[in-house]
């Protein structure tokens, strides 16, 4: 399994792209712009369910979530570029050895996976459709608040451990 993952994680052409003057830094810009859109807008939704900005009806607020998805896509594309093109930034370092040794990267991937499961729980518990009925001033059900608090904490944790990754290299 290890050699297979190691084989797939190293993309020589990505290393060429990320080794240009602009490749790595452009991806950093996209990663930060993406995280602002993703965590900022998901945070709005979570905070509304937790009771902030209660005057906002919940169903229409979903109209902004596609912009969070845009942010997520920006982060995934630039993040995968960092991993697959890592050899361009750190000569001779293989992404696979970083994946199995860097605690912060592992925690980040774990928290993103947990955020995904949390989102799945949001739909499977029926909370997703339940909160659609919340008009101005309405209080979210307790279960929805738990899911919102989990989501907010996980995304903040993703940024936190993500920022530490360079110090674990």
């Amino acid at each position: 399994m290890g050699p297979l993952i190691a084989y797939w994680l190293r993309w020589p052409s990505m290393e060429v792209l990320m080794g240009t003057d602009w490749g790595w830094s452009l991806c950093e810009i996209l990663h930060f712009a993406g995280l602002a859109l993703l965590v900022g807008i998901v945070g709005m939704f979570d905070l509304r369910l937790l009771g902030m900005a209660k005057a906002v009806p919940v169903a229409p607020l979903r109209r902004f979530l596609p912009w969070a998805v845009v942010g997520f896509v920006l982060c995934v594309v630039s993040g995968l570029s960092f991993v697959t093109g890592l050899g361009a930034n750190l000569e001779g370092v293989h992404p696979y050895s970083v994946l199995i040794a860097n605690l912060w990267l592992q925690l980040k991937l774990l928290f993103i996976a947990l955020a995904g499961l949390n989102l799945l729980a949001f739909y499977l518990t029926g909370m997703s459709s339940a909160v659609d009925d919340l008009g101005p001033g309405d209080e979210a059900p307790f279960a929805a608040k738990v899911i919102a608090a989990t989501s907010l904490s996980l995304w903040i944790a993703v940024i936190w451990v993500g920022r530490l990754i360079p110090w674990g290299l």
Partner: peptide, 11 residues
Amino acid sequence: GLAMLVGPNVA
């Protein structure tokens, strides 16, 4: 902080 400020501001 960047996410907390810029995300909602963009929205």
